[in-house]
């Protein structure tokens, strides 16, 4: 039986309890995650930082019910990850956008309406056109992915993940392949979208500055085996704008993050 998905606002978005994940690969066993315990309140924006191979992607995959945990329990919106996935409460943005190349931008955003059992948009939630406008792509509805720049493709992927108004948005290094200017702009826009939609966001990144600028809290993972190294709160004046990264306060907190990261 799938557990019920609790109504909004009265339980944490994510509760990780001693979650461990192992992979068996050619005679070796890799412990991707070990004893992860974590609580993410609804509506927060958590960034995840850590060296390569420390299990950041695996953590998102466990939340999205792509990989089952071997030990411990993962609660998503008070229920199982599977229940949250089937209720379409989870949006996932992959590193390489993962757009279907034969579909136009608009049809890519529409994909969630066509698979997994046809379901109408929840009342009051934004439609595909509105979401494309939200990510700044009004006028590009009919473009095919190969006609879009990397940044624009990533915007389409974000719009697709937001369709249906999921309460949790998982982002796996979504801007990792982009140039710095595009990345900065998308960072600011993501904050705007977050404030506009109230979605809980878990955002994986390799960049200390991105982690500090976006995150209200930064989860630092250590590698081999992947475990929680620290949960670092980031205190910055709201609303956050790009110039805040030039301030001494931001620099100090970023330097602290770097110091924590170096102990991983």
């Amino acid at each position: 039986m799938l557990g019920p998905v609790a109504p909004a606002g009265d339980c944490p978005a994510l509760e990780c309890e001693d979650v461990g994940v192992r992979f068996r690969a050619e005679r070796r066993t890799v412990t991707a995650l070990e004893r992860i315990t974590l609580r993410v309140p609804a509506g927060s924006l958590l960034t995840v930082l850590g060296p390569s191979g420390c299990g950041k992607s695996t953590l998102l995959r466990v939340i999205a019910d792509i990989v089952p945990p071997h030990t411990g329990s993962m609660r998503v919106l008070g229920g199982t990850p599977e229940a949250a996935r089937r209720a379409r409460q989870i949006g996932f943005v992959f590193q390489d956008a993962a757009l279907l190349p034969w579909r136009s931008a608009l049809d890519n955003v529409r994909l969630p309406l066509e698979v997994g059992g046809r379901r109408p948009l929840p009342p009051g939630s934004k439609g595909p056109e509105e979401l494309l406008a939200l990510v700044g792509l009004a006028g590009w509805e009919r473009a095919l992915p190969h006609e879009l720049s990397g940044g624009m493709r990533q915007r389409v992927a974000i719009a697709r993940a937001l369709l249906g108004g999921p309460r949790i948005l998982l982002m796996d290094e979504p801007f990792g392949a982009l140039d710095e200017i595009t990345r900065d702009r998308l960072n600011e826009e993501l904050l705007r979208i977050w404030q506009e939609t109230g979605t809980t966001i878990v955002f994986v990144t390799h960049s200390i500055y991105e982690a500090a600028f976006l995150g209200r809290e930064v989860l630092v993972l250590a590698a081999r085996p992947g475990r929680v190294r620290a949960l670092v709160p980031i205190d910055l004046p709201e609303p956050r704008r790009l110039p805040v990264r030039e301030t001494a306060e931001f620099m100090r907190q970023a330097a602290h993050l770097r110091a924590v990261l170096e102990t991983c």
């Binding site: 995959r61 999205a64 019910d65 792509i66 996935r85 089937r86 379409r88 989870i90 996932f92 992959f94 590193q95 390489d96 993962a98 279907l100 994909l111 969630p112 698979v115 997994g116 059992g117």
Partner: peptide
């Protein structure tokens, strides 16, 4: 692509 497959899984296709 594996990511496209994961996307379909997340969408319960």
């Amino acid at each position: 692509s594996p990511q496209a497959m994961e996307l379909m899984h997340v969408l319960s296709a």
